[in-house]
Computed example of a mutant assay.
Amino acid sequence: MQPGTRLRTSDTEREQVAEILRAAMAEGRLDLGEGEERLAAAYAAKYRDELAPLTADLPDGGRAALARTPTARAATRRSLRRHGSFILILAGVLTGLWMLSGAHFFWPVIPIAFLVMGLIRHARHGRYEFRYSYAHGRC
């Protein structure tokens, strides 16, 4: 890819920026008029570099507001439940293997401890993760 070429944006990228703008409007960071102008510009954008200025003046590029939306919080809760149920199933399997092995030391405690630490980290930092980067594809 040549340095002077501009990358076209996709509908998904435009919709992600529109979600950020809607969340900023809901928080009161953008008034209705300015929010509508930015939404129109987001949907009219043809290139990725046209999207970046729309959220540049929002805290953390607007991602913090997006993380506090009800949809994002519900997705985080679902993800935590899925992660927790996986750990419980794996702990049961490991405990069953320990019982079958006849070992005196309860060795499943070691992998279970690491799995629980991962779950705690997920719970503390498992907010909605905005995966789009305006720098995507740049050198």
Results as ranks from 00 to 15, higher is better:
residue 71 T to E: 14
residue 71 T to R: 11
residue 71 T to F: 05
residue 71 T to Y: 04
residue 72 A to F: 01
residue 72 A to L: 07
residue 72 A to I: 02
residue 72 A to D: 02
residue 73 R to A: 05
residue 73 R to W: 01
residue 73 R to I: 13
residue 74 A to R: 08
residue 74 A to C: 04
residue 74 A to Y: 07
residue 74 A to D: 07
residue 75 A to F: 02
residue 75 A to P: 03
residue 75 A to Y: 02
residue 75 A to E: 11
residue 75 A to M: 11
residue 76 T to C: 06
residue 77 R to L: 12
residue 77 R to T: 13
residue 77 R to Y: 06
residue 78 R to H: 09
residue 78 R to D: 07
residue 79 S to V: 00
residue 79 S to D: 14
residue 79 S to T: 05
residue 80 L to Q: 12
residue 80 L to D: 00
residue 80 L to I: 05
residue 80 L to E: 03
residue 81 R to I: 08
residue 81 R to C: 03
residue 81 R to V: 13
residue 81 R to G: 01
residue 81 R to K: 12
residue 81 R to Q: 13
residue 82 R to P: 02
residue 82 R to N: 11
residue 82 R to H: 10
residue 82 R to L: 14
residue 83 H to C: 02
residue 83 H to L: 05
residue 83 H to K: 02
residue 83 H to E: 05
residue 84 G to S: 08
residue 85 S to Y: 12
residue 85 S to R: 15
residue 85 S to L: 15
residue 85 S to P: 00
residue 86 F to M: 12
residue 86 F to T: 10
residue 87 I to M: 06
residue 87 I to A: 08
residue 87 I to H: 06
residue 87 I to P: 00
residue 88 L to W: 04
residue 88 L to R: 05
residue 88 L to F: 05
residue 88 L to S: 11
residue 88 L to E: 10
residue 88 L to T: 03
residue 89 I to R: 05
residue 89 I to L: 15
residue 89 I to W: 06
residue 89 I to N: 00
residue 90 L to W: 10
residue 90 L to G: 00
residue 90 L to C: 09
residue 90 L to V: 06
residue 90 L to K: 00
residue 91 A to Y: 01
residue 91 A to E: 02
residue 91 A to Q: 03
residue 91 A to F: 05
residue 92 G to A: 11
residue 92 G to Q: 01
residue 93 V to M: 11
residue 93 V to G: 06
residue 93 V to S: 07
residue 93 V to D: 08
residue 93 V to F: 12
residue 93 V to L: 14
residue 93 V to W: 11
residue 94 L to T: 04
residue 94 L to S: 09
residue 95 T to H: 00
residue 95 T to N: 01
residue 95 T to E: 00
residue 96 G to A: 12
residue 96 G to D: 03
residue 96 G to E: 03
residue 96 G to M: 13
residue 97 L to Y: 10
residue 98 W to C: 04
residue 99 M to I: 09
residue 99 M to P: 00
residue 99 M to N: 00
residue 100 L to P: 00
residue 100 L to F: 06
residue 100 L to N: 01
residue 101 S to P: 01
residue 101 S to L: 03
residue 101 S to R: 07
residue 102 G to S: 05
residue 102 G to T: 02
residue 102 G to P: 04
residue 102 G to H: 02
residue 103 A to N: 09
residue 103 A to M: 06
residue 103 A to E: 12
residue 104 H to T: 12
residue 104 H to I: 10
residue 105 F to I: 12
residue 105 F to A: 08
residue 106 F to K: 04
residue 106 F to D: 07
residue 106 F to E: 05
residue 107 W to R: 11
residue 107 W to F: 14
residue 108 P to K: 09
residue 108 P to G: 10
residue 108 P to T: 10
residue 109 V to W: 12
residue 109 V to E: 09
residue 110 I to F: 15
residue 110 I to W: 14
residue 110 I to R: 12
residue 110 I to A: 14
residue 112 I to L: 08
residue 112 I to M: 08
residue 112 I to N: 03
residue 112 I to F: 10
residue 113 A to I: 07
residue 114 F to A: 15
residue 115 L to I: 13
residue 115 L to N: 09
residue 116 V to L: 15
residue 116 V to P: 09
residue 116 V to Y: 05
residue 116 V to E: 07
residue 116 V to F: 11
residue 117 M to Y: 13
residue 117 M to V: 09
residue 117 M to R: 15
residue 118 G to E: 15
residue 118 G to Q: 13
residue 119 L to N: 11
residue 119 L to I: 14
